[in-house]
């Protein structure tokens, strides 16, 4: 579950990004977007602990793609690449890598979990 823990940390970073980089108050959409995506990432990571929704973290892949897409749309259209765009692009790239890692990645997939591997396989 280490990748879920890292996703939660990155989600927290998205939540505080508007303050860290001092997004201008008139750009309300930047605020909504970063804080919204951060909240979604954290919720999806937490849901992944429940057996029924253990694949919820894959939703973070979609969030990352939208983050990267919006960063590209904003960054490639203006000569100046703002800190917000760079932040969204890097966070999207990092989140997508963590999000594809399954829960309990160090154990074999469910089909191969033997009694020996049982305690670690949830």
């Amino acid at each position: 579950m280490w990748s879920r823990v890292v996703e939660i940390m990155l989600g927290c970073w998205l939540l505080i990004s508007p303050f860290v980089f001092g997004y201008p108050a008139e750009n309300a959409s930047w605020w909504y977007w970063d804080m919204g995506s951060g909240t979604i990432v954290i919720l999806l990571a937490l849901l992944s602990w429940l057996p029924a929704t253990r694949r919820a973290h894959l939703g973070t892949v979609l969030v990352s793609l939208v983050l990267i897409g919006s960063a590209c749309a904003r960054g490639w259209s203006s000569p100046e690449i703002s800190a917000a765009v760079q932040n969204d692009a890097s966070l999207g790239l990092m989140l997508i890598m963590f999000a594809v890692i399954p829960c309990n990645a160090s154990a074999p997939p469910a089909g191969w979990r033997t009694r020996a591997a049982g305690p670690s396989g949830v």
Partner: peptide, 26 residues
């Protein structure tokens, strides 16, 4: 201009990916 982030940062993320995908799995 292509990556939106400095090339060193892009490389750093790729190295991080090496570590992530190296660590995951049985």
């Amino acid at each position: 201009l292509w990556f939106l982030i400095p090339d060193a940062a892009f490389g750093a993320i790729a190295y991080l990916g090496d570590a992530i995908f190296g660590l995951a799995g049985s």
